[in-house]
């Protein structure tokens, strides 16, 4: 089922910040909906449940949502991936402190840091 990552140029204009961060813990997680897909399927329409996670920011790529060294609670929406403690990478975020949501179909695995930084410069975000 997994669709490819979105084009970063389609997503970044709607983003408020991008940080390099590590997941410190999963704060809450909605119940996972059971799958009703063909058990032989190589991909299904199922989605991983919404989570709220705490990030430790190690570097700010752009935006003023958090400073390096700060912790931040963000929402991982229902989608194609899930997070657990120790996951890390570039997180592109939309929304204000306390209500920010992670953008990108695969969270920190959607785009490499270099691509986010380049696009941010190109689009006047950084």
């Amino acid at each position: 089922m997994a669709k490819p990552p979105e084009r970063i140029d389609d997503v970044l204009p709607g983003a408020d910040a991008a940080v390099l961060a590590e997941v410190l813990r999963v704060v809450t997680q909605d119940p996972q909906r059971p799958s009703s897909a063909d058990p032989m399927a190589t991909s299904t329409p199922d989605k991983a449940a919404r989570q709220v996670v705490e990030l430790k920011v190690t570097k700010v790529l752009f935006g003023g949502l958090a400073q390096a060294g700060a912790t931040l609670q963000v929402v991982k929406p229902e989608g194609d991936y899930a997070l657990r403690a120790g996951n890390h990478g570039p997180f592109v975020l939309k929304g204000g402190a306390g209500a920010a949501e992670i953008l990108g179909r695969f969270g920190p695995d959607t785009w490499p840091e270099g691509l986010v930084a380049q696009a941010a410069q190109r689009l006047g975000k950084a």
């Binding site: 997994a2 399927a41 190589t42 991909s43 199922d46 194609d80 899930a82």
Partner: peptide
Amino acid sequence: IAAGTCGTDQAARYTNTGVYANHA
């Protein structure tokens, strides 16, 4: 030959591996 990964209920195992859940 094709291969499929596990479903999104196990998606957290995949993050940062370079392999994607629920994918062929």
